[in-house]
Structures are given as structure tokens and as C-alpha cells.
């Protein structure tokens, strides 16, 4: 089928269809414009893209960067893994009346600030690493549970009725519809919330800098007002986050191929 010609007006219309190649050109064009605007407006306190690029190259060529990077990655993966397990258990139990208030309370913990609880967590944990993991879990789990419970709440009631009509017990229906049926959504929630943990990690690493990490690097550079390095690290963190997001998206398609099909009428 021939590709329809893209008109300039399509770029400005709501629901305008511009095709993949035009979208790619648009993205590249806007990126270049943003960089040019940044380059032209920088030079004072704000480092220019060329200065950030120089800093990034320097940071990436230092061996300590990789030590810090792996320290951060290890911490985030450990915290994410534990948070997912805790959030899944809490969310799956949410449909059992006795556990519902607990799940609801954990969801509301999104409104608690971590800063006020640092002292309590310091008393409760034995070392800096445990402190960071505990804070991350405490910060991530309420967001995870909120998203997962929202997925569970949006399940079509007819799916449970189908289970009943197929003579399944309540536990079997729960397993089939809530656990197996929503695994792809759990993965999606995990992908979306990975960004939260990635943002929180830099803050938490600042609390205990002995293990290093990208957060510790960022704080040190801030302290010496080395804004070229600060922006360099920020850009690196941003790219790692974007790549992880893409990777998790690909893994979801691979593990759950049915999510790639649009339901036909």
C-alpha cells in the first residue's frame, strides 16, 4: 500500500497522522532545536551542551564511574526486586477482605515524606546499605501497590463470572484472573515505576555516601559547584533510565506476546 503523503498541517492537527519516518524527523529536529537553544542561552551559570559533553566524556573515561554506576545499579535492582515482591503480595491479598485495610493504608503512605522518617530508619537498620534499601522500599512500595491495585480494580467483572461458569473455586478464579491474567500489567507497572526508584536512588545515596553511587557523585559535584559534571551525570542517569525503560518494554513484549495484539471486532 502506498504511504500517504504527509502534509505540513498534519503536524499541528489533533490526532494528526504523520507516519514513523516523519515522526523520527520531527523528534530529531526538535532535539537539535533544543540543543541549539541551550547552547545559545548557556555560557553563564548554565553549562553549554558542549561543556556537558566534555564532562560526560571525562566521567565515562574514569574507572570510578563504573564502580559508582554498578553500586547504584546493584542497589536499585535489589530495592526494586524486594519492592515488587512486597507490593505483589500486598496487592494480591487486597481482594481478601481481611487484608484490604492494610493495602489501603500502604497506598496512603504515598503521602508520607521520607525525610521525616530518616531518623527512625537509621535507628531500625544496622548499616548504611540497609538504611538505603529500607528507605527505597518504603518509598517505592506505596506507589507500586497503588498502581497494582488500580490494575486489579479495573478487571472486568465478567472475567470472574466466566470463572464461576467454568466451575472454578474463588481461589482458582483469583489465580487465573488476578495473578496469571494480570502478569503483563504487573510488568508494565514495574516498568512505569522503575522511574520512581531511579529518581529516589540519587536522593537516598546522598544519605550514606560510603558506598558511592551516582547519587553520591552528583552530590559531590554539586558541593563544588562543578555544574558541567552535574549536568553530565544527569544526562548519563537520564540515558540509563530511558534505556532501561526500553529494555523492560521489549521484555514485556517477549514474555507476554498477547499484549502486542489489538483485539479485533
Amino acid at each position: 500500500m502506498p504511504t500517504p503523503k504527509v502534509k505540513a498541517a498534519d503536524f499541528f492537527l489533533p490526532f494528526g497522522r504523520i507516519g514513523k519516518s516523519a515522526a523520527g524527523i520531527l523528534l530529531a529536529g526538535e532535539l537539535i532545536l533544543a540543543l541549539v537553544a541551550w547552547q545559545l542561552s548557556g555560557g553563564g551559570l548554565l553549562p553549554t551542551p558542549s561543556r556537558v559533553l566534555t564532562s560526560m566524556t571525562k566521567i565515562l573515561s574514569e574507572s570510578y564511574f563504573f564502580d559508582n554506576f554498578f553500586s547504584t545499579l546493584g542497589l536499585v535492582l535489589q530495592a526494586m526486586g524486594l519492592s515488587i515482591v512486597i507490593a505483589m503480595v500486598v496487592s494480591y491479598l487486597y481482594l481478601i477482605p481481611v487484608f484490604t485495610p492494610i493495602a489501603r493504608f500502604i497506598m496512603k503512605c504515598r503521602y508520607l515524606t521520607l525525610t521525616g522518617l530518616i531518623f527512625l530508619f537509621t535507628l531500625l537498620t544496622s548499616n548504611g546499605h540497609s538504611l538505603k534499601i529500607s528507605l527505597l522500599i518504603f518509598g517505592i512500595v506505596p506507589f507500586f501497590v497503588t498502581s497494582l491495585v488500580s490494575v486489579i480494580d479495573s478487571i472486568d467483572k465478567a472475567e470472574f463470572e466466566l470463572c464461576k461458569s467454568l466451575r472454578m473455586t474463588n481461589w482458582e478464579a483469583w489465580w487465573e484472573v488476578v495473578i496469571l491474567g494480570q502478569l503483563d500489567q504487573v510488568f508494565e507497572v514495574m516498568r512505569q515505576n522503575f522511574a520512581i526508584s531511579w529518581i529516589m536512588i540519587t536522593m537516598v545515596e546522598g544519605l550514606n555516601m560510603s558506598e558511592g553511587g551516582l547519587g553520591a557523585m552528583l552530590i559531590k559535584s554539586n558541593k563544588y559547584i562543578d555544574l558541567g559534571s552535574v549536568f553530565g551525570i544527569l544526562v548519563i542517569i537520564f540515558f540509563i533510565g530511558v534505556c532501561s525503560d526500553y529494555l523492560l518494554g521489549m521484555l514485556r513484549k517477549w514474555f507476554f506476546p498477547y499484549t502486542t495484539f489489538n483485539t479485533r471486532n
Binding site: D156, A158, E159, E161, L162, S165, E176, V177, L180, G181, L183, D184, F256, Y258
Partner: peptide, 12 residues
């Protein structure tokens, strides 16, 4: 047996 209007099946 129940066949709902939107033919619910296990999508996974």
C-alpha cells in the same frame, strides 16, 4: 454455561 455479550475469554 454463560456466553456474555462480549465473549469474554482468558486473554493470556
Amino acid at each position: 454455561g454463560v456466553i456474555p455479550q462480549n465473549y469474554i475469554l482468558f486473554k493470556h
